[in-house]
Each structure stands twice: as C-alpha cells, then as structure tokens.
C-alpha cells in the first residue's frame, strides 16, 4: 500500500506526471465545454427545448446525475489549476536571470498566455456559477414555468434576463475569447503531453485544436450576442 502510494507521489511530483494530469483533466474539461455549448444552443430552438433540457439535467439519475457531474468537474478543475500553478512557479524559478534581449521564434501568443487566460477563466467560472447556478444577487431562482404539466425552472427566461444586462454579456464574450485562446494551445498540446502525436498526425491535431477553439468561441458567443445585441427573446 505505502509502496504504491510512494510511486504515485513520485509520479505527481515529476514534471511529466503533473503534465499528464493536466492533459487528462484538460481533456475532460474540453469535452465538457462542447457538451455544455450544445446544450445551451437549445435556447435557439425555443423555451420548451431548453427548459426540458434543464429539467432533464436536474432530474437525471433521480437528481444524482448532476451531482456526479459537478463533483467530477470540480475535481478536474482543482487538479488542473493546482498542477498548472505549481508547474508555472517551477518554470519561473528555472530562469532567475532573464535575457536582456528576449526573442521568440515559434511559440504562439496563446501558448505564452496560458496561465493568464486560465486564471481569467477561473474568475469567469466563479462568476458564472454565482450568476446562473447559485443565483447570487438576482432572483432567477424564482423563475418558474409550466413544462408538460410540471412546474420547472424557467431556464429560457433566466438566460434572456442574464444577457440583457450589458456588463454580463460583455464579460461572457471576453471570457470566451480567453477560452478560445486557451483551447487553441491546450487541445493540440494534450495530444503531445499524452504521447499520442506523430509527425503524420501532428498537423491534424493542430488544425483540430484551432478549429475546436473557434467552434466553441462562435457557438458560445452567439448566445449573449443574439440576446444583448440583436434582442433575441425580447
């Protein structure tokens, strides 16, 4: 038991071990982001579709499903953030004296900005959960509607109300730009860290990473922009 624990500790303490965990938790979050976006786009199908979807998420597995997902995502987010902060601190410490003349040959801007795009996303996640999940500072929790004879939470009305307020819509768009930047390096990068890239497949991974980041940006931004700029749902 203790020998296994010792090996696990050594794995976590190693640079590659930590990076592997960052890649695996990143992969979970990458898939979550896509699922979350597809679900949210139901708002364009109409109030019934998104309210039914919201009700399904709340009740799946007798209400346990949502908690399993929440705990899993929370664990992934915590591991992803703790490991990357430790890695970043080690990276800063590895070069105490900076170059007088700094040059960058191939590193993308997104790749050099990962810790900052990531920390902005952390701030966004906290705000997002307070805004639409905990309903802090708003009365969205009291919005109810009739769904096939059941009284359910009115997700449609909540989203329309949430994005009708300009500062929220703007912050969401900024956060999605950060997410796009983060994904444009992170998605292809996880294939490298997990040892799955080859010379043949690397250009595909790189393209897929950029396309994925763009897809998430367009899909997620379409909602606040449609509501705030074009008055969708009013």
């Amino acid at each position: 038991m203790s020998a296994v624990f010792e090996s696990l500790t050594r794995f976590y303490q190693s640079s590659i071990g930590k990076k592997t965990l960052v890649a695996l938790t990143g992969a979970m979050l990458v898939l979550f982001v896509l699922g979350h976006m597809i679900g949210n786009l139901l708002i364009f199908v109409g109030p019934h579709a998104i309210n039914e979807y919201g009700h399904f998420l709340q009740t799946v597995g007798h209400g346990m499903g949502v908690w399993v997902a929440r705990i899993g995502l929370l664990a992934a987010v915590v591991i992803h953030i703790v490991a990357t902060i430790q890695l970043t601190k080690a990276n800063r410490a590895a070069r105490e004296q900076r170059y007088g003349c700094e040059a960058t040959q191939v590193a993308s801007r997104s790749s050099r900005f990962m810790i900052w795009s990531g920390l902005t996303l952390l701030a966004f996640i906290v705000y997002h959960l307070l805004h639409f999940t905990a309903h802090a500072g708003n009365n969205y929790g009291s919005y109810m509607t009739d769904l096939d004879g059941h009284q359910v939470h009115d997700v449609y009305k909540m989203v329309i109300a949430g994005f009708s307020w300009a500062p929220a819509a703007i912050f969401y768009v900024i956060a999605m730009l950060m997410l796009c930047s983060h994904l444009s390096h992170g998605v292809s990068s996880l294939f490298q860290t997990l040892g799955l890239a080859t010379n043949k497949t690397w250009p595909i991974f790189k393209f897929v990473g950029h396309a994925y980041a763009a897809l998430i940006l367009v899909g997620n931004c379409s909602i606040p922009i449609a509501i705030w700029v074009f008055g969708y749902g009013h």
Partner: peptide, 24 residues
C-alpha cells in the same frame, strides 16, 4: 530545470534539429 509547455522553441533553436517528437 523547468517544465515543457509544448511551445517548441527548443526545436527551432537546436543546432542539430532534434525533433520535438522525441518529447512525445
């Protein structure tokens, strides 16, 4: 030493053009 962040500056600087696929 620091940790790799998959930016591939190393490959660009390497006088022997060692490929980052070795890191993979």
């Amino acid at each position: 030493f620091g940790n790799c962040t998959n930016q591939y500056e190393c490959e660009a600087a390497c006088p022997k053009e060692i490929s980052v696929r070795w890191i993979t």
